[in-house]
Computed example of a mutant assay.
Amino acid sequence: MLDRSFFARDSVVVAPELLGCIVTANGVSVRLTEVEAYREDDPASHSFRGVTGRTAVMFGPPGFLYVYFTYGMHYCANLVCGADGTGAGVLLRAGEVVEGVALARERRGEKIADRDLARGPARLAQAMGWGRADNGRDMVGAVRAGEPTAVVAGPRTGVAKAADTAWRFSIPGDRFVSPYKRHPKAPAAE
C-alpha cells in the first residue's frame, strides 16, 4: 500500500507513478491506465482560484479523494497531492476493473463492455461507486503499488486552459486508456 508520503509530492511526479497502481473502494479495484496532474498555479486546475467550499479538500492533506460534480451529471475523482495547504491533485482518468467486475457492471450498466467500465474519469468514478459523500475520503491504504510500466505524456484532454500542458500520463498501447479529445474552446495546438 502507498503511504501518505507517496502523495505528499508534486502531482506531476506522482501522476506517472500511479500508472499500474491498484485503487480499491466500495468493492471494486481498478488498475490505473491514465491520469492527469493539476497544480494550484495551473489555470486548468480547480484550485487555481484558491480555497473554496468546493475545492477545500484539494488543499490537503495529501492522500485524500477530491470528488467533484461536472456537466450536471457526472462525478470525477482526484487523489490529492503535494504539501498540506497546496492545491494539487491527480485526476483518475481511466483504468481496468480487476476486481469487482460484476459490481462495476451493475453500477455502469449490464451491457457495458469490460473495456468501457472505467475508461474515462466519470466512468471510473461511477464504477468505483464514488459520489459527493466520498469527497474528503482518506485513500491511504486503498492504493497499492502495481507493476512498473512504460509511460507516455501528452496534452490533457477536455480542458480549455493550459490545454497543451503535457501532464496527461498513460500506459502506451493499453486498451483501457480513453481517447484524447481536445476541448473545442482550447486555442489551436502550439
Results as ranks from 00 to 15, higher is better:
Met1Trp: 10
Arg4Phe: 14
Ser5Tyr: 11
Phe7Thr: 11
Ala8Ser: 07
Val12Tyr: 03
Val13Leu: 15
Ala15Leu: 15
Glu17Arg: 15
Leu18Pro: 00
Gly20Glu: 00
Cys21Asp: 07
Val23Trp: 13
Thr24Ile: 07
Thr24Ser: 15
Ala25Pro: 04
Val28Glu: 03
Val28Ile: 08
Ser29Phe: 13
Leu32Ile: 07
Ala37Met: 03
Tyr38Trp: 08
Glu40Arg: 08
Glu40Pro: 09
Ser45Asp: 02
His46Met: 14
His46Lys: 13
Arg49Tyr: 13
Thr52Pro: 00
Gly53Gln: 10
Thr55Ala: 10
Thr55Phe: 11
Thr55Leu: 14
Met58Asp: 09
Pro62Val: 11
Pro62Asp: 05
Gly63Met: 14
Leu65Gln: 05
Tyr66Cys: 05
Phe69Ile: 04
Phe69Gln: 09
Gly72Asp: 05
His74Thr: 05
Tyr75Ala: 05
Ala77Gln: 04
Asn78Ser: 06
Leu79Trp: 12
Ala83Ile: 09
Gly85Thr: 12
Gly87Thr: 11
Gly87Trp: 07
Gly89Ile: 00
Gly89Thr: 01
Val90Tyr: 14
Val90Asp: 00
Leu91Ala: 10
Leu92Lys: 01
Leu92Ser: 06
Arg93Ile: 02
Arg93Glu: 02
Ala94Arg: 03
Ala94Val: 00
Val98Asp: 01
Gly100Gln: 06
Ala102Lys: 07
Leu103Tyr: 03
Ala104Arg: 10
Arg108Ser: 00
Ile112Lys: 08
Ile112Arg: 08
Ala113Met: 02
Arg115Ser: 08
Asp116Cys: 01
Asp116Ser: 07
Leu117Met: 10
Leu117Tyr: 01
Gly120Pro: 03
Pro121Asp: 12
Leu124Gln: 02
Ala125Ser: 14
Gln126Ala: 05
Gln126Arg: 07
Met128Gln: 07
Gly129Val: 06
Arg132Ser: 11
Ala133His: 02
Gly136Tyr: 14
Arg137Tyr: 15
Gly141Arg: 10
Ala150Tyr: 08
Val151Gly: 01
Val152Ser: 13
Val152Leu: 06
Pro155Gln: 09
Arg156Lys: 10
Thr157Leu: 02
Lys161Ile: 00
Ala163Gln: 09
Ala166Tyr: 00
Ala166Val: 10
Arg168His: 07
Arg168Met: 12
Pro172Met: 00
Pro172Cys: 04
Gly173His: 09
Tyr180Val: 07
Tyr180Pro: 11
Lys181Arg: 14
Arg182Val: 12
Pro184Thr: 13
Pro184Gln: 03
Ala186Ile: 14
Ala188Thr: 09
Ala189Ile: 06
